[in-house]
Write a protein that binds this DNA or RNA. Structure first.
Lengths: 347, 347
DNA sequence: CGATTTCGCGAAAACGATTTCGGACCGTAG
DNA sequence: CTACGGTCCGAAATCGTTTTCGCGAAATCG
């Protein structure tokens, strides 16, 4: 437990005052080049590390943004968080992650003294304060930005999920065939989630309704897991003959559908036309048509909004809505690329 | 931006000195009951929230433990983190989570001033400092506890993966049949992972070798995903006739194997005997035999070790190794329960 | 050359909590 | 009545950093 090196120590070593050292460290202009170097040399030599607690104490800022999100680990959140994290880091902010693993944890986080509120601002990903907090008020008086969720009173970044789904569905309906939507089970919604899948559902419905009503359309609900997609298709194929159209409400489910179709020896893009949502990095390899969701942009916009709000706390809420793009690949236009064979090594 | 309520304000409101308020808040004994109540009333009335930065600044403690882990989102880490978080919370500590999403992030975390080191201690889950940090030294001089990884110089909590795998394999080998291990692809190992799958591989090998050598044994490597398990079994079934024994290196893969077997109309537990590792909550529903890994215990032990080290920084490293238990269910003893049919709602 | 501005620097005052230590007060024992 | 011990409380020091403000020296100007 050796004592920590303080500004004092550095100042003494460099033969200057503590304020000068502080100025050097914070890039103030009124320091002569020669002294700046001398100070930096001392900093290095003594391995000085500024005491963050003291700094935040003094400034009242933590240079940290807390990010709430539902159970994470999905590619969506991995990419979103990475984007947010990168954007914040380039402005000298840190992102502190708070996945809401379970109700108990959430409960702790409803207290104003909980760790997450020890930050300069909050980002809520796929979460709505109205659902999360009893009185619809954040426990602490921090500025907040919502990503993948809308709220009139906060800055938000959203993606037009309904329009994306409609885009995909209309594209599928260009071929006249029984058309199915594979959705995530409803119980996945609730406290922990925003309504993205509900929106996608609506978009599907809407596209179907504004189309030739004689086509058969149906919605299936499955667990959030590629297996879900596979089972859904298997079930459909037991009742219907190809060709079929399938709108999968996310690429993960779409992958399951593709897998199952392949397993049954069907031609992707001909017998079974599939469109997903997300445009995950692997969707291209799979030849999967999909609705591109600009996740990285959502993340960087969120960071931008946070920074802007920190700079101007009083400004009116801003809302950024990102538009979906339909990316047509083999899975919906015939001649889908073959599924790459996974090499398996035998002992 | 209303000014924050300070100890001073409370003291004034309650007609006492600041030190008295502080004592009340920190549970010191030398405060009369009547004043204690008066102070608490003022605290509530003014909605006083202690300034954490000021507190950590003064005490030098943050009451926070940073937890590093690989990309998360798997059930293993969800459960582990939950357990750690709960245990710490009950001792007035917070857990701050740092999933190592990508190299860039890790790189930032190699700097001693990075956010994770703004804590009283570190927990590394499935991570080894020797692999993670260039000079095999933590960037900051914090006590650290390793979970699911071993290191002589740190407190560790481990699980005997090799023995678990051997247990499972020996159990499978009670029935004389071609025996397969489904492992996670090697590229999953590396900076971000500990060697658990390597250990399980070794355990399998060892069990096979100390058994009748005439039985056919083989190792398959697949992606970490239920689909991987399914594909592995499909591949094996193209070359071998049932009955088969399959050791899946985790329940997730085992689920894939079970799914595929069902799909092919085979009897789980008779035609295909499967044992997984983890004993995830859903393994029971699946009738999956498995090696139980006491994840919650690992978490609480980790928290315990952290707390102990914080109390006695100088003590010698302690190592806790948890033993695997074989849980035999239908998937390895015949008469496996039927897979529950997933209800799918039609529009 | 004197007057004024600019530059470089340091002394000192915060920031909000914890903790030490002595003092006031009260009750009880000698 | 005096001494003493215990209980309860508050004044003040302290933690490491940022930031303001003023001072002296140097540079620039008229």
């Amino acid at each position: 437990m050796k004592k920590q090196v303080t500004l004092q120590d550095v100042a003494q070593h460099a033969q200057v005052g503590t304020s000068t050292v502080s100025k050097v460290l914070n890039g103030y202009p009124d320091v002569a080049e020669s002294t700046r170097e001398r100070v930096l040399a001392s900093v290095r030599e003594l391995e000085f590390r500024p005491n963050r607690a003291a700094r935040s104490f003094r400034t009242g800022k933590t240079q940290t943004v807390s990010v709430f999100m539902p159970m994470i680990g999905t590619e969506f959140y991995d990419r979103l968080i990475t984007a947010i994290d990168d954007a914040l880091a380039s402005h000298d902010y840190d992102a502190a992650l708070f996945p809401l693993l379970n109700e108990k944890r959430l409960e702790r986080y409803r207290s104003a003294e909980a760790l997450p509120y020890q930050a300069d601002a909050l980002i809520l990903a796929s979460l709505n304060p109205d659902w999360l907090f009893a009185d619809a008020r954040l426990p602490a008086p921090l500025p907040a930005v919502l990503v993948d969720a809308y709220h009139a009173e906060y800055d938000t970044v959203t993606f037009d999920n309904a329009r994306g789904a409609a885009l995909a569905t209309s594209h599928l309906l260009e071929v006249n065939a029984p058309t199915f939507a594979v959705m995530v089970e409803r119980f996945q919604e609730g406290t922990f989630s925003s309504g993205v899948f509900i929106e996608r559902h609506k978009g599907f419905q809407h596209a179907v309704e504004s189309h030739d009503p004689r086509v058969h359309a149906e919605v299936l609900e499955v667990p959030f897991d590629p297996t879900g997609g596979a089972e859904a298709l298997a079930q459909v194929l037991a009742r219907f003959e190809p060709p079929l159209n399938v709108f999968a409400s996310c690429d993960l489910l779409a992958k399951g559908v593709v897998d199952e179709a392949r397993r049954q020896g069907l031609q992707i893009g001909l017998d079974v036309r599939v469109v997903g949502v997300d445009d995950q990095p692997w969707a291209e390899d799979l030849g999967l048509s999909t609705i591109r969701q600009p996740i990285e942009q959502m993340g960087s916009h969120a960071a931008e909004l946070v920074l802007a709000r920190l700079a101007k706390p009083g400004a009116a809420p801003r809302h950024i809505e990102l538009e979906p793009t339909l990316v047509v690949r083999g899975s919906s236009e015939g001649g889908g690329q073959p599924h790459p064979i996974r090499p398996t090594q035998i002992n």
